[in-house]
């Protein structure tokens, strides 16, 4: 069980840092500062961060920034990155054109 209010109190308010403008998710142009600020608004998980800021939701699906976002959240929450649950993986693993999928009838020979 995670007590969100207690955790927010523990980590204290958001404090600006000089590298807050640093781009972390390049597909969706999300900065370090946005991610750090979101943590102080109660966004503690990668899933929520994806929903809130779209980090890791672009063409590369977080392959580049997933680990980086995780470590930023962890450092803001003052926990080890291992305590931040990785985001889920969704098909398709590589982007595919709608017309190609539309031809797929569920078998091998269609």
């Amino acid at each position: 069980m995670v007590d969100i209010q207690a955790k927010l109190k523990e980590i204290g308010p958001f404090v600006e840092e000089p590298d807050d403008d640093l781009l972390v998710c390049r597909c969706e142009e999300v900065t370090k500062g946005q991610i750090r600020k979101a943590v102080h608004e109660g966004i503690f998980t990668l899933e929520e961060m994806r929903r809130y800021l779209r980090s890791g939701m672009g063409l590369c699906q977080g392959q580049t920034c997933g680990k980086l976002v995780k470590s930023i959240i962890a450092s803001e929450l003052k926990v080890s990155p291992a305590e931040v649950v990785p985001a889920s993986s969704r098909a398709p693993m590589r982007p595919i054109e709608m017309c190609i999928l539309a031809e797929d009838g569920g078998g091998c020979d269609e």
Partner: peptide
């Protein structure tokens, strides 16, 4: 592109998904 239950894979080969 996908690994589904019953050990089924979907594979994009050229412009087909099999």
């Amino acid at each position: 592109v996908g690994l589904y239950p019953e050990k089924e894979v979907t594979v994009k080969i050229g412009d087909k998904v099999k």
